[in-house]
Design a protein around this nucleic acid. Sequence first.
DNA 1: ACGGGATCGTTATAGAACATTACAATGTCG
DNA 2: CGACATTGTAATGTTCTATAACGATCCCGT
Lengths: 160, 160
Amino acid sequence: MRSRAVPYRPRTLAPIERVPGLDYDVLDDLLGYALRRAQVAMFLAFAAATRGLDITPPRFAALVVIGANPGISQSVLGRVLGIARSGAMALADWFEARGWVERRRRSDDGRAWGLHLTRRGERLIAAMKERVRRHDRRRAAVLTAAERRELVRLLEKLAG
Amino acid sequence: MRSRAVPYRPRTLAPIERVPGLDYDVLDDLLGYALRRAQVAMFLAFAAATRGLDITPPRFAALVVIGANPGISQSVLGRVLGIARSGAMALADWFEARGWVERRRRSDDGRAWGLHLTRRGERLIAAMKERVRRHDRRRAAVLTAAERRELVRLLEKLAG
DNA sequence: ACGGGATCGTTATAGAACATTACAATGTCG
DNA sequence: CGACATTGTAATGTTCTATAACGATCCCGT
């Protein structure tokens, strides 16, 4: 059995409960674990912001990136999201089926498609961006503005 | 089509590339996105620490919690990990098949099983904890000790 | 003591998100 | 021109997880 190519992405809406009286041992000592718990919390905010839209964080990120970089290829999109080409293609298909994105031939490369938002996709993502940002801010409101800035700085330093 | 019960867990070893010249738009403004990138970075450290052991973060967390709380029930384990009972059971099965964990009847509750590490499981998790902690520290070494403490504090505040 | 409702483990089923592999078409560069 | 890389695509398989249902057991109000 090959050692698998591993999972660690919140696939659930269930928060990670802090069960009173339970010993978390070394977990409380790991940055990775603290990150995961915070990420799940922020994910709940994201889910609230996009409720009923059938949007996931990767889908959201993809739409934003396509909108900000019209004509981007599926390969590059995959690299940005950290997924394989085939996955990026599935995303593009899904968007296209909904009429949010269209593929146009590129003059500079006969192999690649250029991805573009449709008018409808643009309207949608504009509204979504606002809602996601608002919820993100609201959830982060347990932090002061200075704390929030510091947190972002540390996270980016960590992400390298 | 029902709105799905959503994904956002790093399932891949591929880092989220920072493609030069690309516009990330609102993503750079979202705490959720910064968290995700940092989490992927820490996940790489975890994967390095457990290479070849067929261990994932949820599996690791489960073993640690079982070790620190002998006799814990599958339901509570599920709540701690943020997964459904059925998933916690699958985990327990997997551990048991490997001889790392055993189920014992509990005197106080005829329905529940108590989960316990076997001798072998104890040895394994002890070694694993050390390796994971070491890799976590090493990856976090881009931060000063004070920064690391502050980061953990902010993350826990955010996780609520 | 009893009866209704909650909780535990379990099983079965379904679905999403991926990776991997292979292929043809196109690009690049010696 | 020819070797080699890269693009999109299709097919396949794995893993994680949820959901729903079930019997057994517990708990609590009457």
